[in-house]
Design a protein around this nucleic acid. Structure first.
Length: 275
DNA sequence: CCGCGATCCTGGGGGC
DNA sequence: TGCCCCCAGGATCGCG
């Protein structure tokens, strides 16, 4: 799925649709992650105020104090098109009109695996939504700092990789970016979280911020499903140093990159460079 | 409270 | 071409 850089890129690709008015909505009857009790026709005639993001959730702030929450699961895509052609796995499509120019845009949500979801809430209740209320800090925020992470890791006896992927510790760092961040920090994914010393905690924070920042700059990582709202691919996949490179040579020491499985997810790392 | 595995889905790729 | 198995940017739930 899209991790934080992919959702941030999608959000940025939609900003020009702020101030547009919703005129038509198409919705399939397939369930996404949750059985759909939401009737998107409620969106008719609402105006888009702006687009924001929290963790991996795209938030569309609407008139009448409503917010549409969208999560892309593993394979969700959002594109902005001049036409709606109802492709396989299109789950909803929202027609937007720019009142100044009468320009028409379809915002289309497509998700083959249907692990994503959509919900509509009163904006004042947004932070209390069950999917949002227990989230940790944003990785690029000041709150994600040495003192915070040191305290969190001290209580964790599982491996550092799985720990960082826990959204209650820090949000949006998924399987690609944790693998890349641990390589950058030269820390092995199998290290127990509470065994990291102060220098390692600082390095890990710096590496996560650096990798996430670079990935946003490059428009995210396109492996199989992810595309930008324009339909174009992201570029960070060309910067992978360990993710997906098992059996290939480490760019630093030339030994082979290893692949192991931790909590059901693949981990890629260099046993020589990461301690 | 913790760690771990199963689970929700479809599609692509490799082996045979 | 086809079948079968494994794998995939996530996150929750239930078990011991």
């Amino acid at each position: 799925m899209p991790e934080l850089p992919e959702v941030e890129t999608i959000k940025n690709g939609l900003l020009h649709l702020s101030k547009h008015r919703i005129t038509h909505i198409k919705q399939s009857n397939k369930k996404l992650r949750f059985p759909s009790t939401l009737d998107l026709q409620k969106l008719q005639n609402l105006e888009i105020i702006n687009f924001t993001r929290r963790a991996r959730y795209l938030l569309i702030n609407l008139s009448e104090n409503k917010t549409l929450i969208i999560h892309l699961g593993m394979s969700g895509k959002i594109t902005a098109n001049s036409k709606f052609t109802n492709l396989k796995h299109d789950h909803f499509a929202i027609n937007l009109i720019d009142s100044r120019t009468n320009n028409n845009t379809w915002l289309i949500y497509n998700d083959a695996r249907r692990f994503g979801f959509v919900d509509l809430v009163e904006t004042k209740n947004l932070e209390n939504h069950k999917m949002l209320k227990n989230l940790g800090p944003e990785p690029l925020s000041k709150d994600f700092d040495f003192a915070y992470l040191k305290e969190k890791l001290a209580k964790k006896s599982m491996n550092i990789k799985t720990t960082i992927m826990d959204n209650q510790i820090v949000v949006g760092v998924g399987n690609i970016y944790i693998n890349e961040s641990l390589f950058d920090a030269k820390i092995s994914p199998i290290r127990i979280a509470n065994s990291l010393n102060d220098i390692e905690v600082k390095k890990l924070i710096n590496s996560i911020k650096k990798i996430i920042t670079k990935a946003i700059k490059l428009g995210g990582s396109s492996i199989s499903d992810y595309v930008k709202t324009s339909g174009d691919l992201g570029n960070f996949q060309n910067s992978f140093k360990v993710y997906g490179r098992s059996g290939e040579k480490c760019l630093l020491c030339k030994r082979n990159i290893q692949k192991i499985v931790q909590n059901g997810r693949s981990s890629f790392f260099c046993e020589t460079c990461q301690k």
